[in-house]
Simulated scan of single mutants.
Amino acid sequence: MNDLKGKVIMITGASSGIGESLAYEAAKNGATLILSARRENKLKEVKEQCNKISASEVYVYPLDMSDPDAIEETMVKIENSIGKIDVLINNAGFGRTEEFMTYDLNKAENMFRVNVLGVMYLSQLAAIQMADSRSGHIINVGSIAGKIATPKSAVYSASKFAVIGFSNALRLELKPLNIKVTTINPGPVDTAFFDEFDPSGSYLERIGRFVLTSDEVAEKTIKIIGTNKREVNLPFSLSVAAKLYSLFPALGDYLILNQFDKK
């Protein structure tokens, strides 16, 4: 699948941020695109830009990832009008930094519906399609927060731990069907995501040296399509930190609390 021309790629959360950059990067490589998010007007703007980049088809399907019925209806429409999806990139998600003691658990439930259950519903339906042709690739956008949890991100970290765990098991289940599963685990990315995650706007300033651009994440993600890459952790410094944290968790906890807790 190194040549994406003629391949159908579905991207969720494609109206802004990483998802928008993924759309442009995939368009550069000639893929047929299915763009999904809640904001149809923004999706149409992204589609227009993709059309300027590539002559390949771009389809827009507004979708609320917290609604399983909507996910199923959308997948039926896509299969009937376009056909099988070759690559699914589960990018939609959101987070919020807040102490757990005061966290509104109704918001936590909604976060899990989008970040975790939505990923599961959509992945299951895509995998059923892919199984018929015994080919395909599911890419789930997790987070370094799913490998290194920090204070004030308990709910978000839990949702991304779930995405990573789900992806690891799914990879083993789908391997006999020649369906690949990869997780992309970026650290902080300078996008509108942080409008919700950190309303104060100060977090990104304090961790500047670790901050990625959405274009960097998109480029790395599109490059691994069709490969057997298990996971991609970004940036390199946080990838190393995640490995060290798994080897020395007590030391990791100490450093997070005393050196790296910037929220």
Rank of each mutant, 00 (worst) to 15 (best):
N41W: 12
E196R: 12
Q259G: 05
L170V: 15
G19I: 03
K229I: 15
F161T: 05
S15M: 06
A145F: 10
S135A: 15
L212W: 04
N41F: 14
I85V: 14
V8T: 10
G136T: 08
E196D: 14
N29T: 01
L212T: 04
D67N: 13
A158H: 05
I164P: 00
M111S: 09
K220I: 10
T213G: 06
F166Q: 05
S133G: 12
D195R: 12
I78S: 01
S81A: 10
K77C: 05
M120W: 07
L257P: 08
L172Q: 15
I179H: 01
L244F: 09
R113C: 09
V141F: 02
N233H: 08
A126S: 15
I82S: 02
F161P: 01
Y24F: 11
L251D: 08
L257M: 14
M1L: 07
E48P: 00
N178I: 09
S237R: 15
K5T: 12
I222H: 03
K5M: 02
F166R: 06
P68M: 13
T150K: 10
K52F: 12
V58Y: 04
G226H: 07
M111W: 05
E109K: 15
N115Q: 05
K52Y: 13
A31Q: 02
T97W: 11
V163H: 00
F161I: 07
I53R: 08
D69N: 05
G118D: 02
M130E: 05
M130I: 12
R113F: 08
E231N: 10
N90P: 03
L88N: 01
Y203I: 12
D198E: 11
I78K: 00
V240E: 04
D3V: 08
Q124T: 13
G118L: 02
L238Y: 04
A92W: 01
V163K: 03
D198P: 04
V240R: 00
Q49N: 10
K47V: 10
P186W: 00
F112S: 08
L212H: 04
V141N: 02
L255E: 03
A70L: 07
I207Q: 02
Y103R: 07
G83W: 06
E72A: 09
L257F: 13
T32P: 02
T183V: 13
D132Q: 13
S16K: 13
S15I: 05
N2C: 00
I256S: 05
L88E: 01
S36H: 06
E72I: 07
P176T: 12
L251H: 09
R39E: 14
V87T: 05
I128M: 08
N168E: 15
K180N: 08
S56H: 10
